[in-house]
Design a binder for these strands. Sequence first.
DNA 1: CCTTGACCCTCACCCAGCGTCATAGCCTAT
DNA 2: ATAGGCTATGACGCTGGGTGAGGGTCAAGG
Lengths: 256, 256
Amino acid sequence: MSKRYSVKKVAELSGITVRALHHYDEIGLLKPAMRSEKKYRYYDESNLLRLQQILFYRELDFTLAQTKAILDDPEFDFVKALQAHRALLVQRHKQMGNLIQTVDQTLEKFKGDQPMVLQDKDLYQGFDQEKIDRWNKEVDEKYDPEKVAESRRNVGKMSKQQFKEVQKQGERVTRAISEAMDKGAGSPEIQELIKQHHAWIENFYNCPADMYKGLGQLYVENPEFTAYYEKIKPGLAAFMCQAMGYFADTSLKAKG
Amino acid sequence: MSKRYSVKKVAELSGITVRALHHYDEIGLLKPAMRSEKKYRYYDESNLLRLQQILFYRELDFTLAQTKAILDDPEFDFVKALQAHRALLVQRHKQMGNLIQTVDQTLEKFKGDQPMVLQDKDLYQGFDQEKIDRWNKEVDEKYDPEKVAESRRNVGKMSKQQFKEVQKQGERVTRAISEAMDKGAGSPEIQELIKQHHAWIENFYNCPADMYKGLGQLYVENPEFTAYYEKIKPGLAAFMCQAMGYFADTSLKAKG
DNA sequence: CCTTGACCCTCACCCAGCGTCATAGCCTAT
DNA sequence: ATAGGCTATGACGCTGGGTGAGGGTCAAGG
């Protein structure tokens, strides 16, 4: 005998708009418990409970798709999801910090009332270079200095456009993997894609089984990587790790 | 005799895509120096220079419209724009910090492996309440305790839906003001809107000339407010301050 | 019983900042 | 001359809804 709530009521209770409720209905995130003959939406208490959770994740800046994934799959490890999301938030937090610093520096320069001409060609590079540096540092801490130097040499030799190109390839593979996650980490489809991923990695440095496995670990342990993969799809970081481990144990070890 | 650069060249040099260049052309942010007979775009060095600046503002998370405004209007005080934008970044930075904390707290709770049931109705309120608290605190520091208490009473008496409603009204007025900025702060159009704004403020507390003027000051001095208005339109914070001051000096003083 | 006003429905277009085709024209090197 | 690389425009896609338009529905009061 639970009460039924009209859209308006729910909107008032929750503080979101009627349109948003329509939207959530459209995308299947929150379907009303029932529809009247005349198509009126009526929600019940379980709907409200779910809405609470939706709003919780929304506040934390999850996308609606992520929220749906979390709520719809009871298997979904939401502690891990939160942890991964945390990494993403930390990344943004740092980035904001950096931007603020950049603004401050710029203001510093122009307080001395120079005319508005930005300092030469190097602006382009600044941010990319920084990312590369950080990446290098990460790798430093975890791997053989020889390999690292090799990677750095390879990256250094590439032109900006080559670099972009290679980067794009990587993204394509990653996206393909994210879209086939439901097949399972050990599936032939995924393993084929992982093979491509491994080949891609070898653009940068030779990467035998152990190292590849280690890289997979890095994806879940290191916030920067985790953030990158979680941004693409929730659970992807952990999934990559698993699939890479499998690949290393089967294909790579058999080969080497 | 400067060189001409094709879209592809420019894309490679700058690291953005050809599509983005098309887009910038469409919105008038970066028009190629010339077009061949067959509509091919050709850029020159001054275009590249401008593109540098565009990318600079882009990195800082300005919108393209803001960037356009800054670059197209040589009168535009870009130091002020940067300062205002800084406030916005700081706000986001803080918010990220808060979210991270929230995640941590949640994780803390669920480390003790309780089932996934969020703690009752209060989630809804949490964030709104917090915002209200902060707002109250701001006002505390600047104003007469009597007025503050009054405001708080009024706000407290409103139902959530009333509050939303009133908030929406305010947003409407603010947006109208932002869209008529070009008329000038002293223009009849703006002053009429400012009158509505003042009336809106008086939903919360009685607000005589001096206080209204002070509120305008707050808009440029206090990062939270500044961020709010700058998010709507760059320069809006300062503009509001000016228009409110004018209104206070003319209409309010004459009346009172 | 009828009207009024509040509420509900479904389209369907709008924002940013491009990505991603689709379809077609252009240019140049062999 | 033909291939393949570059170019153009146009149009739809994404996120999370906002903002109508145009029309049906429901409860209360006269």
